[in-house]
Design a protein around this nucleic acid. Structure first.
Lengths: 306, 306
DNA sequence: CGAGGGTATGCGCATCCGGCATAACGGCAA
DNA sequence: TTGCCGTTATGCCGGATGCGCATACCCTCG
């Protein structure tokens, strides 16, 4: 094996070589590098062995790079530079000094809390660069897992993944039922879950809104029945269309009551236990100052809304 | 001091971390890296200390990257990749397997030898990528010194620098004198140097054609006089203009005889010792196969021309 | 509450790498 | 030529680094 050493320690020798070539002298470079000349001289020999060619022309007045030496400088100096700056950036990030904050949220669900919280954040930490990503709950969880998000505002869907990240419950909303305008239920001011027994439920694709169907099932259990999902469609808007065309019902978080959808009426559920938790998830490990600030702001907003 | 280790050995730990994250397990990564699990586990701790933040979430089923871990992967994986490929390229180059050949030459001087030599090279090593740079002798030497050229075809000017590089004499041309058409000398078939004693010489700027004036002086010494440079101009074409306008003379390599310049006549010098050497210079250190091939081709062409 | 997967820790030893002293080498001046 | 002064290279030793081995710890599942 020609190179007995590791690739990493080789980088140290390459750094040393860059200094030697800059100084044009092993002696002067050794001074700059705070080591002795023999040590540096041996490093250069080792590097030449590892690469398999001479890097320096030794002359009585100092050293000069060979063609290979020049090529090494040209290839390695920028790489070493990027490596160092990347390292510095990671160190800053480790100290929680990252100024970028990538937030995932579902606009319709999070708007009422996120907007005021962001206003607070801007006041306390105006230099933070925000990257807002309007995305589905599934995409939020995937984004967190892939390290592409620092923080996600997510509903009941995120409870499943709460173990993987730090989490805090922001508030719990009441639940409502979506029915067609023509449905008898539509006229009621509120409804008990058990009244839905036997109705056709409209489910939603697990891939897009993970756990939503299981949540509905869990909600109905205390009411004494298991919902039958007549159709499972992809996407919330399609669910509402199906509610109309199939005369089905579906359970939704309370913020849908503010929504307008042609032909659909939202009726609040009266059961005490039927709640929709809204939580914030953020990466484990030391959170950046910006992350902590936004989480705090969200908690305050949630407390005020309650 | 937070990081007691070197930046280079840190790269080894970063490499290890990349493997750990890919495998999702310190155990499996240790197998891949051919070290034991405790060793790798300690490397990860060391890296976390050096960066000042947690990189991995330890779970009973293995490990997962934290936000910082993800950021490190994103920043470092491409860098480590470039570093390795750059290293591989340098190793290839050290073994003389580089396929690019950067040649510096002065078209008017080198054309007669370079063209056939390149034809030979193309035959013996057709995969070699040539970069031809038509440049002044000074630029050629600077290019060699800066490692931007592999090989230079240069005249007498290069002899000064021959110690710094490998060199081979290709041929020696006779010398000619440039005089105005109206000059008495212009009618002669040839001329002895001593006949130029007392004439005004036209010199050329040292920065562009280094050593040319010194060469003329050295040439005249055996003839028993020291040329007086009435004017020193920059650039060969300006020299010829001055020859006409100032009725000066200048010494030039023989290949100028083939040139046409209005108002200037070139008269061969008869002195045996007055020769113009044409040499090839190439980088010290192990020369690439392509370099050696071109040098050989040039030598053959030179021998054939003689 | 043991078994079995994972990660962390204590300890001893080889290896590496730097410092010190000194050799070897080349140019320059007397 | 010889001696001097600059350079780089080499011999040797000691300290720190980092590995392997054995084992401790921790969590989950049956």
């Amino acid at each position: 094996m020609p190179d007995a050493h590791t690739l990493g320690s080789m980088m140290d020798r390459i750094r040393a070589l860059l200094t030697v070539i800059e100084e044009g002298s092993v002696n002067r470079a050794a001074v700059r590098l705070r080591i002795t000349q023999p040590a540096l001289s041996r490093q250069m020999q080792a590097l030449e062995n590892e690469l398999g060619g001479k890097l320096l022309e030794r002359e009585t007045s100092g050293v000069k790079p060979t063609g290979l030496g020049h090529a090494l400088v040209k290839a390695m100096r920028p790489l070493v530079g990027s490596y160092d700056t990347a390292l510095a950036e990671l160190r800053r990030q480790a100290r929680g000094e990252r100024s970028e904050l990538r937030v995932g949220y579902l606009l319709s669900a999070a708007q009422s809390m996120l907007t005021p919280a962001l206003a607070k954040l801007r006041k306390s930490q105006p230099e933070v660069k925000l990257k807002l990503h309007d995305m589905s709950p599934r995409e939020q969880i995937d984004g967190l897992r892939a390290g592409e998000l620092d923080l996600a505002l997510i509903g009941q869907e995120g409870v499943m993944a709460a173990r993987e990240f730090h989490s805090a419950k922001l508030c719990s909303l009441r639940v409502c039922v979506a029915v067609a305008d023509s449905d008898l239920i539509a006229a009621q001011k509120s409804i008990a879950l058990k009244e839905l027994k036997g109705r056709d439920f409209i489910g939603v694709d697990e891939a897009q809104v993970p756990g939503r169907n299981r949540w509905m099932t869990a909600l109905c259990k205390p009411a004494g029945f298991k919902p039958r999902f007549a159709v499972v469609v992809d996407g919330i808007t399609n669910v509402l269309s199906q509610v109309v065309s199939e005369s089905g019902v579906t359970l939704l978080p309370g913020y849908f009551e503010k929504l307008q959808h042609p032909g659909v009426t939202f009726v609040p559920v009266s059961d005490e236990k039927a709640r929709w938790d809204f939580i914030v998830l953020w990466q484990k490990g030391r959170a950046s100052a910006a992350t902590r600030a936004l989480v705090d702001a969200l908690k305050q907003v949630a407390a005020a809304l309650r």
